[in-house]
Amino acid sequence: MGDAPLLEVERLTTVFDVGGRALPAVDQVSFTVGAGETLGLVGESGSGKSVTALSILRLVQPPGRIASGRIRFRGRDLVALREREMRALRGADISLVFQEPMTALNPVFTIGSQLEETLAVHGRATGHAARRQAVDLLGAVRMPDPARRLDEYPHQLSGGLRQRALIAMALACRPALVIADEPTTALDVTVQAEILDLLREMKARFGLSLLLITHDLGVIAETADRVAVMYAGRLVEQAPVRALFHDPKHPYTRALLASVPDDRPGTPLRAIRGAVPSLGALPPGCAFAPRCPDRFEPCDRLPPGETRVGEGRAVRCYLHGDAVEPAAAVPGAR
């Protein structure tokens, strides 16, 4: 495989068939995650982050479906795998950490039995060996008093400890890639900081790759190596983390960074006017056009395509190039 990235997502389009239309929640999205790398996927509510994550794991439920594109993991195209092969891969090679640990953990089983179950299902260990490994895993995620926690139920743990248990479960089979979908959104700032530290530590210790999904630019700045910015189902900018924060190229990225409260208390914030368009009512051209301060005449015609703008950087905006990308032709759309 040589230097090929661990995960390559190529022109992924995932649609929801609603009211006779195929609404593109994820529209021709391409990105890679390298071995040992953290890619931060940032975007606001409804931009398509979770649907991207679910697509990679092939967990999108009807009326949603992957309409086109490729998802290569270690060179294998996941879109073409049989469900049985996909099941073997989930949790073992790629695992998922959700936003809300309470819904991801089964309330009627102890933390220990859920960890042991995960190990058993993937043929890692059973019986006493599984129990020993479960204690080790809880220790690794810094669960205080791991042996005792094993026999506790999810509701007996605080939000932060539950998220630790979930991370332990995600790490149980030593996956190569962990997808963390808003892993700290439901947590207090102080607990969030601890969990982010933990993810960084786990990444270094187990040589993981991480796809970290969040709407919080601060979390991205602290955790990601590279960043992909999503808006209305499309990736509008990709860049190494420093480049993104020091020299954002896309008007949406710029506006988002500028709208954060800064050091001038009491002054008006630089707000972005308008609101995110809904999928059913996307403008014909650039999806950000109705809110863009830099909009000019090509912007309203067709969606811009991707333009390379330096080392490891790409942006979809006519300010940076005249590449055009018509909306995905969706097979099976009615």
Partner: peptide, 21 residues
């Protein structure tokens, strides 16, 4: 102090000086 030190900073180069309570 712990609360303030936990605020994520919008600068990838900012030193992280986390205080744990």
């Amino acid at each position: 102090r712990a609360l303030l030190s936990a605020i994520p900073v919008l600068d990838p180069d900012a030193p992280r000086a986390r205080l744990v309570l």
